[in-house]
Design a protein around this nucleic acid. Structure first.
Length: 569
RNA sequence: CGGGGUAUAGCGCAGCUUGGUAGCGCGUGCGUCUGGGGGACGUGAGGUCGCAAGUUCGAAUCUUGCUACUCCGACCA
């Protein structure tokens, strides 16, 4: 490709709308352009990268024995009603009507469609197991699209689905997919980790996420500092404290804490460590048989954060988690949110195990601007229920039993689930088993965010000059950068001949034939991240040499013209 | 949805407080020079100041409403 025929579209300045580095560089290097919130056009350079990622994913899926298909993006609403997700999925599901006013959705995922397909196509256990996948545009009406293509509304996703008669067969395929994912991210040249994950709204049993490690990631991943344990913080268990709770030493006392609301303020006002305080959150509970919706109090140590996934998994707590309003709190407790505490409160209380281990702690007294000091479980409160409610923090013992927790940020680029029979049941997906009886299938599903990977790769591979593509996904393998070609016939001849040779050898080469100054060309190619630059100038032609610059290592070397092709063998 | 911010040329911004002919840098067309790290000089083009209504002799500037984008919290590949 010649730059004179190519839509280079590089930007010198960083557009104000871009926050994270990958978004900035994707705009600056001319990979994408924004059309509307969460909607992006892929320019030639970006599309080249996207296709490379896509192809690696495709090859490894095929290697894992999955068949590629393509399903419609627009799906009839009745399929979603059948699975129950028409009601469950929420506003993220974009709903629309056709000209006959028939309801449809823009597919955010394809469990319904594929399950229906397989239900129709398969009739015998002999056809199992079966894995199908597609690489296709999805639409999710995200609450807040951000970070460019990292969280866009329209995005490219590989979604694979496997179908089995029995769970042990599903487990085998799951493992196969797990391995395929590792191969994919290895080939992409990314620093990634598989981590234990919550199954979320998709449902099911076992689940792993694949995270690319980067500070801009939206997820916290908990690692063990000695073993290879890794889990999403949502999922990582905070182990119960092993020490015995200390005996009460202080008497329960009320203290005025005027205008003090946050737990940090309480701790500094009373001059106690924040981990000797307790905070109490009121959430909505599940409806009782009498049709009432009670409030439930969740109690955490002052320095800990509520883990909403864990809270939602508690039977009494309504899911999705809903915090009590100020009015509800006033009605139930008789004070403002900043002064609630577990002592003498007429609400069911669930205490995090770390908070339950405290003695002589500080908590709200259920009176405005008053707190208790010297509070103690059992002595001052009725019996309490304990649970794991909090996010793990750095230094916690690792749930695997070895080492302690380290937390890093990750970008979720893949997620695999053992789905079970939720969809197969809802959509009547069954085959005849060996005994000639109908048996509902069990399923796995396996996603990869293809467009997100492009952004994640940049987050992990850039410097102040621009992108440093891993070789496997670079838009071009090499760029020819001639110095003052307009004036030098020698430079032009050499460049043209090299371009022809590289093209003939099937190497993706970008020939910068613009009449630009060297600085402009260098800046553009460094921004675009081409791994190798061939710099042709009068200076080195006397010795029949060309300068080769490696974008990744920064190394420069001189090579004889007729040795250039050996770089690509 | 809640809370902040922004909207003026392709991009980055100033002008608005105190209403009076719309500006700067980069980019861009043309010309000359230059030619191994975003070069210089000359000369052009390019804007219904997000939209609508209002106040006023007069609105980018003041008022009201709307819209879009964006950042911080709940969703997920």
């Amino acid at each position: 490709m010649r730059t004179s025929q190519y839509l280079l579209s590089t930007l010198k300045e960083t557009p104000a709308s871009a926050e994270v580095i990958s978004h900035q560089l994707m705009l600056r290097a001319g990979l994408v352009r924004n059309l509307a919130s969460g909607l992006y056009t892929w320019l030639p350079t970006g599309l080249r990268v996207l296709k490379k990622v896509e192809n690696i994913v495709r090859e490894e899926m095929q290697r894992a024995g999955a068949n590629e298909i393509s399903m419609p993006m627009v799906q009839p609403a009745d399929l979603w009603e059948e699975s129950g997700r028409w009601d469950d999925y929420g506003p993220e599901l974009l709903r629309l009507n056709d000209r006959h006013k028939r309801p449809f959705v823009l597919g955010p995922t394809h469990e319904e469609v594929i399950t229906k397909l397989v239900a129709n196509e398969l009739s015998s256990y002999k056809q199992l197991p079966l894995s199908l996948f597609q690489i296709q545009t999805k639409f999710r009406d995200e609450i807040r699209p951000r970070f460019g293509v990292m969280r866009s509304r329209e995005f490219l996703m590989k979604d694979a689905y496997s179908f089995h008669l029995e769970k042990d067969c599903l487990e085998k395929t799951y493992q196969k997919m797990f391995d395929a994912y590792c191969r994919i991210f290895d080939r992409l040249g990314l620093n990634y980790r598989p981590v234990l994950a919550d199954t979320g709204s998709i449902g099911g049993d076992a689940s792993h996420e694949f995270h690319v490690l980067a500070d801009s990631g939206e997820d916290d991943i908990a690692f063990s500092d000695v073993s290879d344990f890794a889990a999403n913080v949502e999922k990582a268990e905070a182990l119960a404290p092993t020490r015995e709770r200390a005996e009460p030493k202080q008497a329960l006392a009320k203290i005025n804490t005027p205008n003090i609301k946050t737990i940090e303020d309480v701790a500094s006002f009373l001059n106690v460590d924040i981990d000797k305080t307790v905070k109490t959150l009121l959430v909505c509970g599940n409806e009782t048989e009498q049709g009432e919706q009670p409030l439930i109090a969740l109690v955490l140590r002052g320095d800990h954060q509520l883990n909403e996934v864990k809270a939602e998994s508690i039977a009494q707590v309504a899911s999705p988690i809903t915090f009590a309003t100020d009015e509800q709190i006033l009605e139930a407790v008789g004070c403002k949110a900043g002064s609630i505490g577990p002592i003498g409160m007429n609400i069911e209380i669930i205490v995090d195990r770390s908070a339950a281990q405290l003695s002589d702690f500080v908590c709200g007294a259920n009176e405005n601007d008053v707190h208790f000091t010297g509070a103690n479980w059992q002595r001052d409160s009725s019996t309490i229920e304990m649970a794991d409610l909090r996010n793990v923090v750095e230094g916690d013992p690792s749930p695997c039993g070895e080492g302690s927790i380290v937390i890093k940020r990750g970008i979720e680029v893949g997620h695999i689930f053992q789905l079970g029979s939720k969809y197969a049941e809802a959509l009547n997906c069954s085959v005849l088993n060996e005994g000639g009886k109908n048996q509902t299938l069990t399923m796995g599903c396996y996603g990869i965010g293809v467009s997100r990977i492009v952004a994640a790769a940049i987050e992990q591979n850039h410097d102040k000059f621009g992108i440093k593509w891993p070789k496997a996904i670079a838009p071009f393998q090499v760029a020819i950068v001639p110095m003052n070609m307009a004036k030098s016939a020698r430079v032009k001849e050499t460049a043209e001949s090299l371009y022809e040779q590289l093209n003939n050898a099937g190497i993706e080469v970008l020939f910068d034939d613009r009449k630009e100054r060297p600085g402009v060309m260098f800046a553009d190619h460094e921004l675009m991240g081409t791994p190798l630059l061939l710099i042709i100038g009068e200076r080195n032609l006397d010795a029949q040499q060309i300068e080769v610059k490696n974008r990744i290592s920064g190394e420069k070397s001189l090579l004889a013209i007729d040795e250039i092709m050996s770089l690509f063998e």
